[in-house]
Design a protein around this nucleic acid. Structure first.
Lengths: 232, 232
DNA sequence: GAACCTTGACTGTTATCACATATCAGGCTT
DNA sequence: AAGCCTGATATGTGATAACAGTCAAGGTTC
């Protein structure tokens, strides 16, 4: 009945997401963007009213977000946005720094040249015109996932997605506290292009090291920006 | 009004678990024990009837178990027990083998002697009299978690618990396929005692290596037992 | 005889409703 | 005036019911 909207070469099936999933995405977006600050109380009925749905999907969403570590949902009491803690931030990045370089070793020989070209292009467009901050971080997460995709199983992707989302909250708030230096955008773009270049050399160890350093640098940057306002 | 039951030195608060949580635990137990085999279709209403509850808690439970990777829950269609896949098994153990030895390094200097004694004792009682298979694996999971607890943050514990549960399903089925050799019980008990001994030496690297080898051995054991019935 | 369509039962999804519990404010007691 | 109790309000939890989509079987048509 409904006509799928054509796009770039092929007809894509219309994605009819469930209300529950839409609510989950919206609340997650609000949390990652900082609109719902850490510690913010999340009342089922108020959220349901704001989103103009019943509180059943909201309930589902909070349960999912709890499993992602973005929300704490004590039984019987109101849910709230998970607090920020530098110890947690370090633990999240530890998992990333252990897993991602390891996957990179196995991914390097499997990444097609065309895919690397595409990723290089994507990195060049980071923070490009008319993309919201949400879109930019979506791109960023997809970029890191695509670098490891050839070597990542479903379980790896689950862990990676969880970890990237959990760390993203810290990174966004940390970078938000930095001076809005335009050169910072250039630096990030360049850093990701260099990362792709490193993968192009087809040297597993070198790529793994480059990815580890990339993660370490970002962790340190966010950490210094955050420390002061948070408990260590 | 209700009098809390006194126990070993202190009055513990009565834990009143929600129905949703009880249902989650029961379904998870059934999946890990193999009562609900991989691929088994999970109908909300049938499960609700069997558990004598409404399907609302069942729905919540399936959503939680989906986030743990034990259940696949496609929107609009029936949920089912996640299939077994040796590639997935390897990915799960990769995360464990990367994370757990790393945590062990930081945990070794912080584990009290008394705690190590307690864990040694617990290992000695593995598979002891009148404990169900479920209890044994609960003990086993708690044992591994306790070894790393001093160095593990909330995020680490989240990842570890997820990984241990996900791998437990493979291990239990794999070991179930082995001949019920009583010497196998002795071997496992001894292996865990040796692990504690290694931690007692207070050598971070040695402990990390011992834990990695322990995990590698168990992975290989379950893998050989499973291969043949599963796709590689 | 095989492919296609139709129809029916089944199942997940969402909304509305009833209940138990937690939270908080106001007033009382000390 | 501070602490405790008590009442009302709000909130999470669970159940029931109506809606919509899926899937399979049986009939029809080519």
């Amino acid at each position: 009945m409904t006509v799928a909207s054509a796009s770039s070469g092929s007809v894509r099936p219309i994605e009819t997401r469930s209300v529950s999933e839409q609510v989950t995405n919206e609340i997650r977006r609000s949390i990652l963007a900082g609109v719902l600050p850490p510690g913010q109380s999340l009342s089922l009925r108020k959220l349901a009213e704001q989103l103009d749905v019943s509180f059943i999907p909201v309930r589902d969403a909070l349960r999912v977000l709890e499993s992602e570590g973005l929300v704490v949902n004590p039984p019987g009491r109101s849910a709230s946005v998970a607090p920020l803690d530098l110890k947690e931030f370090h633990a999240i990045y530890r998992v990333r720094r252990l897993l991602e370089p390891n996957l990179a070793r196995h991914s390097v020989p499997r990444l097609a040249d065309a895919e690397l070209d595409r990723l290089y292009q994507a990195a060049a467009e980071f923070g490009g015109a008319e993309r919201s901050m949400d879109d930019i971080y979506d791109d960023h997460r997809a970029f890191h996932l695509a670098l490891l995709a050839p070597a990542a199983s479903a379980w790896d992707i689950r862990i990676l997605t969880m970890s990237e989302r959990a760390s993203e909250r810290y990174v966004r708030i940390g970078f938000g506290l930095l001076d809005p230096d335009p050169s910072e955008h250039d630096r990030r773009r360049e850093a990701h292009q260099l990362l792709v270049d490193e993968f192009r050399k087809r040297d597993p160890e070198g790529a793994a090291r480059a990815l580890d350093e990339h993660l370490a640098y970002n962790e340190e940057l966010a950490r210094t920006a955050l420390s002061g306002g948070l408990a260590s």
